[in-house]
Structures are given as structure tokens and as C-alpha cells.
């Protein structure tokens, strides 16, 4: 009797999960068929194909993604005259560790990039919220190889993230996901607001830097370097510009980057105070399209 019970439970579970998988595949296919471009989505599984070769791979948080959003991608590609893929993730949902995972996923599909450009936002290495965000993969398609690789990947809050990943495919937000056709972000600031900046810092991390968290993030950044080296990609670290200049954790991050430069021979550029005019920003640390154009042609073009 007990064997019958176990078989029945197994059979029912397999049926339920198979049906669920069919639904997940179907809704994923439906969304995938809408043909997204890199500039039109923040999903990486929708844009990372197999066996492709790129000149540059941008990664990081929103400050990296900003080089592709609002059709900025085309502008940056044109100015740099390079083929670019951007796997950066904005929206406060992706930690450096998940960025490492995305890079692994990129290489696992047989893709190549001559250089990996890590937009090293200082707060990314100290944030307590990013590593536990559970909605990191909400915009990713249901892909068994992606899921399998992530199951084997060491990460905080992993299972909750996986459940949320599966759940998100069954929501109307996913089914209604459309390419973002916005061309250009032209809002701009007129001056710097100290209070907003302070609030922003607090939002990005706690009052004091958690040293353990910072060390862990540094370790993960080094893993990114090793992974890129293994795949014959050059590594470039860039601290992006901000209207307020330096982030509170700027010095620690800069010191760490310099250490990596010595140890691994990577290129490191600190552009934190390179753009200080408010008209180039749509908020205190995100460049608008005009700012992206300016920064890319003046600062990125000579180095990439």
C-alpha cells in the first residue's frame, strides 16, 4: 500500500509540475515572440542569444543599464562604433552576485565579448537590499537552463527568488510585457538638491557601511574578473558620474578597484566627478540622453 501511495504522489506531482511547466513555457514563448531589443527591456534572457560575439559587454546596476535604456543603446554603439550587449539590471533588484550569475549565463551560451565593462556604482557593493531582493528575475523568460544554472549558483535568498521567478510568469504584468519604445530621456535637473541626495544615500544603504557585506561584494567582483579572464575578455571598471560627485563609500570602492588593477591588470577609471552639470542628469546620479551622449563621446570613447 505504501508503495502505491508513493507512486501516486510521485505521479500526481509530476503531472502537476509538467502542466505548470507547459503553462510557463507557453506564456514565455508568447512574450518572447514580441521580439525585444536590448534597449527595450531589462530582461537578459530575452536578449542573450547563443554563440554571438560582442565588442563590449556592459554590466552593473541602473547606471550600466542607463547606457541602453530609451534607445541610448544605439547612440552609445554609434559613438563607440562597437557592438554592445548590456546585461546591467536597474530598478534596485539585482546585486553584484546576480550580475556575476548573468555573466556566467552569458558565457554558458557560447557568447563572447572582447571587453567586460563593469559600471562600478559604489553603493552597489554596500547595499543590504540588493542581495535579498526576490524579484530579480521577474522579467526573465522561463528557461530551464537558466533555472538549472541558478539552482547550482551560490546566492542569498536563492529559493525565494526562484519561486518569485516562476510566479512572475503567471501574472498579467508578464503576459502584458511589451517592448519599451521610449526614445530618449530628456528630463533634466536645474540644480542639486542636498536633501534629496541625502535621502537617496539612505535609500541605497544603511547609515554605516556593513564591512562584511562590502567584503562579500568585493569577493564577487573578483569572481567577475576571473570569469571574464577565463573567457578571454578584458575587464574595465568604471565608476560612473554623479551630480553630487562621490558616493559616501567612494574611497573604499576606489581603493578596492585599484587593488584589482594591480592584482589582475584590469583597467580602472574613476569618472565620479566628470559630469557635474545638472542639465546632463534626469536625477542626481542618472544621466539623461544628452548626458549619456556627452559622457560617452568625451569619456568613454577614448578608453573603450
Amino acid at each position: 500500500m505504501i508503495k502505491k501511495f508513493i507512486y501516486k504522489v510521485l505521479f500526481t506531482s509530476i503531472c502537476f509540475f509538467s502542466l505548470l511547466s507547459v503553462v510557463l513555457f507557453a506564456v514565455s514563448k508568447y512574450v518572447e515572440d514580441k521580439k525585444f531589443k536590448n534597449s527595450q527591456t531589462e530582461s537578459n534572457t530575452l536578449i542573450v542569444k547563443s554563440d554571438c560575439k560582442y565588442d563590449l559587454l556592459f554590466m552593473g546596476i541602473s547606471h550600466a543599464r542607463n547606457f541602453s535604456r530609451y534607445e541610448n543603446h544605439k547612440i552609445v554603439e554609434r559613438i563607440l562604433d562597437k557592438k554592445i550587449i548590456n546585461i546591467g539590471q536597474g530598478g534596485g533588484i539585482c546585486s553584484i552576485n546576480e550580475q556575476l550569475f548573468y555573466l556566467k549565463y552569458f558565457y554558458s551560451k557560447g557568447n563572447k565579448a572582447d571587453a567586460v565593462v563593469l559600471i562600478l556604482t559604489p553603493s552597489m557593493l554596500t547595499s543590504e537590499k540588493l542581495p535579498i531582493a526576490s524579484n530579480t528575475f521577474d522579467k526573465e523568460i522561463f528557461d530551464l537552463s537558466f533555472l538549472y544554472q541558478y539552482l547550482l549558483f551560490d546566492s542569498e535568498n536563492k529559493y525565494q527568488r526562484i519561486i518569485k521567478y516562476l510566479q512572475s510568469k503567471l501574472t498579467k504584468e508578464w503576459i502584458n510585457l511589451e517592448p519599451d519604445y521610449t526614445v530618449g530621456k530628456f528630463d533634466s535637473l536645474t540644480r542639486m538638491d542636498e536633501l534629496t541626495v541625502k535621502k537617496g544615500f539612505l535609500l541605497a544603504r544603511q547609515q554605516n557601511i556593513n564591512i562584511e557585506r562590502f567584503k562579500k561584494s568585493c569577493f564577487q567582483v573578483e569572481e567577475i574578473i576571473k570569469l571574464a579572464e577565463m573567457n578571454n575578455s578584458k575587464v574595465v571598471f568604471i565608476i560612473p558620474p554623479a551630480l553630487f560627485g562621490k558616493w559616501p563609500e567612494h574611497n573604499q570602492v576606489s581603493d578596492f578597484a585599484k587593488k584589482m588593477k594591480e592584482k589582475h591588470g584590469i583597467n580602472f577609471y574613476d569618472f565620479s566627478e566628470s559630469v557635474l552639470k545638472p542639465q546632463y542628469y534626469y536625477d542626481h546620479h542618472h544621466l539623461n540622453t544628452k548626458g549619456v551622449k556627452y559622457f560617452t563621446s568625451v569619456y568613454l570613447k577614448p578608453i573603450l
Partner: peptide
């Protein structure tokens, strides 16, 4: 019955709160 159990299973998948 199985169809009903599957609906409950799907409801857990769709609306279940995943925070611990």
C-alpha cells in the same frame, strides 16, 4: 477532484506569498 487540486496548486503558485 484532480482538476480542483490542480487549481489549488496553481492558486498557490500564482498568489502564494513567498516571503518566509
Amino acid at each position: 477532484k484532480m482538476a480542483f487540486y490542480f487549481i489549488i496548486f496553481m492558486a498557490i503558485m500564482v498568489w502564494g506569498v513567498t516571503n518566509k
